[in-house]
Nucleic acid binder design. Structure first.
Length: 304
RNA sequence: GCCCAGAUAGCUCAGUUGGUAGAGCAAGGGACUGAAAAUCCCUGUGUCCUUGGUUCAAUUCCGAGUCUGGGCA
């Protein structure tokens, strides 16, 4: 393929990525590739703020609603799926537009991240988790220091999830690599954009969106998922919007409390996304101003 | 109109026997290679309502004022 241009549109939740991407796709004959960990799941439409049915039909959308909520998704799997569809789009002479706010998944496309090794059976992980439960975080971290001091030095002992994963990875013979040792993926020419807006405005949009999601039937959606047997233990059901509403349905909080938590957690998530995006030096930031139309934003990207 | 209480961080409030202050929540900053909307780390934000007085020193004590509650008329 001669043209290897791939657009990437990221940014915090609720900034308006989807709408901008659709507009861009129309303009450049592009196709959208999802890079949002929750929108990969079926039945999780409202809470994950997926594009509407009408929007999905406006231009081709890929990797939305492709697995059941109990599917054990990993970055490695996502990467494989994403590369396959990106190549497919390019072969057909169209332009892929990767859209989403899941930083790690973004990395798996933009950087040369090698996930060649087998995915590990979860037995060992479970064992390590039980060990952590019994012996404590410090013990596990010390253990990691014994076998892989370099990795251990980069992980806080309290971040037991990462400690466990590091032990698991070490035992499997791969270890964990860090991003700074990782070259850019040069198979494609990336046009990497991050949308932002003034923090206060973004938070206001988030708060409003939460209300509109609830009005659109979020509670019913969560009730249905639970009825289908997708319990709160599943990673998918720990996503923002699902965990808070599930807690409400279980009687752990009242409705108002659940909505407030949902707003707060979404705000915090947006903040973490912004922090993540700041690490890239080759990202072009586009600050959306009040009064900008979606077309204005797209134009700025194409000028850019 | 009179009486009482309050006024301190974005919010709710604690506190300073007089030496310019701290909790919770909200917030800010950061990390990140197979769960990532996950997981984890760090941080405190101030005309202590205004104004006189006493004092070496007042956010703290006293007086007046303003505002906000509550009560009595």
């Amino acid at each position: 393929m001669d043209n290897k241009k791939v657009y990437v549109i990221s940014g915090p939740t609720a900034v308006g990525k989807s709408a901008v991407a659709i507009q861009l796709a129309k303009k450049i004959d592009g196709e959208i590739v999802n890079c949002d960990s929750v929108q990969l799941y079926k039945y999780m439409d409202i809470g994950s703020a997926k594009p509407s049915e009408a929007e999905l039909n406006e231009v081709p959308h890929h990797l939305f609603s492709i697995v059941n909520p109990d599917y054990k998704m990993t970055v490695a799997t996502y990467q494989k799926l994403a590369f396959a569809i990106i190549d497919n789009i390019l072969e057909r002479g169209k332009t892929p537009i990767v859209v989403g706010g899941t930083g790690l998944y973004l990395n798996s496309i933009i950087y040369e991240m090698d996930f060649a090794g087998d995915s590990k059976d979860s037995e060992r992980r479970k064992e390590l988790e039980e060990m952590a439960e019994k012996m404590g975080n410090k013990y596990m971290h010390d253990y990691l220091s014994g076998i892989d001091p370099e990795t251990a030095s980069k992980i806080h002992p309290n971040n037991i999830r990462k400690v466990v994963r590091a032990i698991e990875a070490y035992e499997a013979g791969d270890g964990i690599k860090s991003l700074d040792t990782c070259p850019m993926n040069d198979r494609y020419d990336f046009e990497f954009y991050a949308l932002t807006m003034e923090r206060e405005w973004l938070y206001d949009r988030i708060n409003r969106r939460v209300i509109s999601l609830v009005k659109a039937g979020l509670i019913e959606e969560v009730r249905k998922l639970l009825a289908m047997g997708y319990t709160v233990e599943l990673p998918s059901m720990k996503a923002i919007g699902y965990k808070e509403i599930a807690a409400y349905l279980a009687g752990e909080t009242d409705k108002l409390e659940a909505v407030k938590l949902l707003m707060r957690n979404t705000r915090r998530y947006a903040k973490r996304q912004i922090t993540w995006l700041k690490r890239y030096d080759d990202v072009k930031w586009i600050e959306i101003q009040k009064g900008d139309t979606i077309g204005d934003v797209v134009d700025r990207m194409l000028e850019g």
